[in-house]
Nucleic acid binder design. Structure first.
Length: 544
RNA sequence: GCGCCCGUAGCUCAACUGGAUAGAGCAAUUGCCUUCUAAGCAAUAGGUUACAGGUUCGAGUCCUGUCGGGCGUACCA
């Protein structure tokens, strides 16, 4: 419908003598106030300046030249300072209702990104400990953004980037080794800054079972490190699986060293005179890209800083043929993003193909106080613990219901007691309720193949249909903005329209034709709810 | 000090990227279960959108400044 409105408006615009540059985007939006119609445009107000005329006059002229299909648009009005308001024809609504029922679980899909290959990189936690509530927001956001993009026609891959080398992994190995020796009753000094979590003890216990004391005389931490890594990775994947998240690939940072990508990046930067040596280190001239200081990419120890592999990694993504590479970052990584962009720009890549979603941190509130988490200190709440308490659906919903850009307060106690009061149940309840009714309709009536939809004229019925037909647009906008919370807000609005309908309009016990029509309407609502919840990775139960 | 994000009802947050009278959920008060799930509905109350300027037909949204909070600002990742 929006596209249709744009088309007829731009057709009518041709009567004005306008330069290309003066023609603004035609914005169509849904007015807040329903008395203002179903869709509105502010185009006349935007044209006031270039045409040097008052907006209402322009609107009048525009509406005069408007050629529209009466079967779709019932009325066009000019209101306020120069808004043009459109009212949909009821037949159009019934047609759309049929579309929903025909398209079923495809309703809402579009082809905006058809043919595009998109890589979404997320989670990317190094295997030093279980996923925490802090990682949860990242994981769920990344996965849901991927799902949204799939609904816009893109071919999406999900990737987990990790680093299993370096100091943290060494410390991890040492921590397990110390616990292993302690398990055997030997004196062992726990490493400074070691990982203190209970999971380390469990890994050590497993090693005692597997190896007995055969590793106790060796200084080699490799077996400890390897065992810890594989065990932790396995647990992380289990946790993700439990959250309905499946990674298509894992990318090991190490491979960038092995295949020479890292060296190649440095070489190319040197060739372009964007890298130089100073104080024994190698620097990237980030000042050329507007930064105040240059950035070290290879330390004087010869070890690269994480920025260098990051640049190589993003180049690698684009080399693999992705049209778009999306990163999901916590706010603490925001500073590296410009460096990565500068890096790939320097290497000759199109920076518009890299996009980042930055989400603000989750503030954990425990016992009414903010709670500082650290994987190393083992004072964290794991995602698994959280899911044990509130379930998968609530967990996913909780992380998605706020804009990524806002700080998310996660009150553990509240989440626990939320249980049945949680807003996610409102959506699932509406869905289950519809199915309960449909089961009864099935028992008592035979479903008509072609119900008379045009007897759906009650205010609540019309409002409900209007709400449903917004679904495809919502998905597109949520996908473009990378903001899944928009979909949640929409679904809450839809569910609320359904409950109004539920209270105003009975289904069972009415005349047969009305039962058929209303049951059809309810069926469509259940379909849209199920589609929406599906994108969020949340279950849509038929019974509660 | 500098950079990024944020400041909206008692609390947690929306507001379709500059639109019309700023909306929900918790919490509070009041009604509604002999009728398809009361995990619900209806209603009341709650606001100088942190503050001060500016831009324009129009600002919670954009620009400047101030105050407050978060994150960064390493040859840590």
């Amino acid at each position: 419908m929006k596209d249709y409105l744009r088309k007829i408006i731009s057709h009518s615009l041709q009567q004005f003598e306008l330069n290309e540059a003066d023609i603004p985007d035609i914005e169509i939006e849904k007015p807040n106030d329903p008395t203002h119609g179903d869709a509105a445009t502010n185009i006349a107000m935007k044209l006031a300046r270039p045409l040097r005329n008052n907006p209402r006059k322009i609107a009048e002229q525009l509406v005069e030249g408007l050629q529209y299909d009466k079967k779709r648009i019932k009325a066009v009005e000019i209101a306020g300072p120069g808004f043009i308001n459109f009212r949909y024809a009821q037949n159009y609504l019934y047609d759309e209702l049929e579309t929903i029922l025909n398209q079923k679980d495809h309703f809402g899909k579009s082809s905006n990104h058809k043919g595009e290959k998109i890589l979404v990189e997320f989670v990317s936690a190094n295997p030093t400990g279980p996923l925490t509530v802090g990682h949860g927001r990242n994981a769920v956001l990344g996965d849901t953004i991927a799902r949204l993009l799939e609904w816009t026609g893109a071919e999406v891959d999900r990737e987990y980037y990790f680093n299993n080398a370096g100091r943290q992994m060494r410390v991890l190995g040492q921590s397990v080794q110390a616990r292993y020796l302690q398990e055997l009753g030997k004196d062992a000094e726990f490493p400074e800054g070691g990982y203190e979590g209970e999971y380390i003890r469990n890994i050590a216990k497993d090693m005692v079972e597997d190896y007995g004391d055969s590793l106790s005389d060796s200084d080699d931490i490799t077996p400890f490190k390897d065992k810890a890594e594989s065990q932790i990775f396995k647990d992380i994947k289990e946790t993700l699986k439990r959250m309905n998240i499946h990674m298509d690939s894992d990318f090991n940072e190490r491979s960038l060293y092995d295949d020479g990508s890292i060296e190649k990046v440095v070489e190319k930067l040197r060739e372009k005179d964007l890298a130089y040596d100073e104080d024994g280190a190698t620097w990237f001239k980030t000042t050329e890209f507007g930064k105040e200081k240059d950035t070290v990419i290879i330390k004087s120890t010869g070890e690269p800083t994480y920025r260098l592999p990051d640049i190589a990694y993003h180049a690698n993504k684009l080399d693999r043929g992705y049209d778009l590479a999306i990163d999901v970052f916590g706010a603490d990584h925001i500073d590296t993003y410009p460096d990565v962009l500068s890096g790939i720009k320097a290497l000759g890549y199109d920076t518009s193909k890299v996009d980042v979603v930055v989400y603000q941190f989750v503030t954990i509130v425990k016992d009414g106080k903010p709670f500082k988490m650290s994987t190393r200190k083992a004072n964290f709440v794991t995602l698994d613990e959280l899911m044990d308490e509130v379930g998968v659906d609530v967990t996913r919903f909780f992380f998605l219901m706020r804009s990524p850009n806002t700080h998310l307060e996660f009150d553990i106690a509240q989440a626990k007691e939320a249980g049945e009061k949680n807003p996610v149940f409102y959506l699932q309840y509406a869905h289950a309720r519809i199915h309960s009714i449909l089961r009864k309709v099935d028992d008592e009536y035979s479903f008509s193949k072609s119900p008379k939809l045009n007897i759906l004229t009650h205010e609540s019925e019309i409002a409900l249909i209007k709400s449903m037909i917004r679904f495809p647009e919502m998905i597109k906008s949520a996908a473009e903005a990378r903001e899944p919370h928009r979909l949640i807000n929409y679904l809450e609005d839809l569910a609320s329209h359904f409950t109004s309908f539920y209270h105003d309009c009975r289904i069972l016990g009415e005349e047969e034709e009305l039962v058929q029509a209303r049951a059809t309407l309810a069926k469509a609502v259940a379909q849209v709810l199920a589609n929406g919840l599906g994108i969020l990775g949340i279950n849509a139960p038929e019974q509660m």
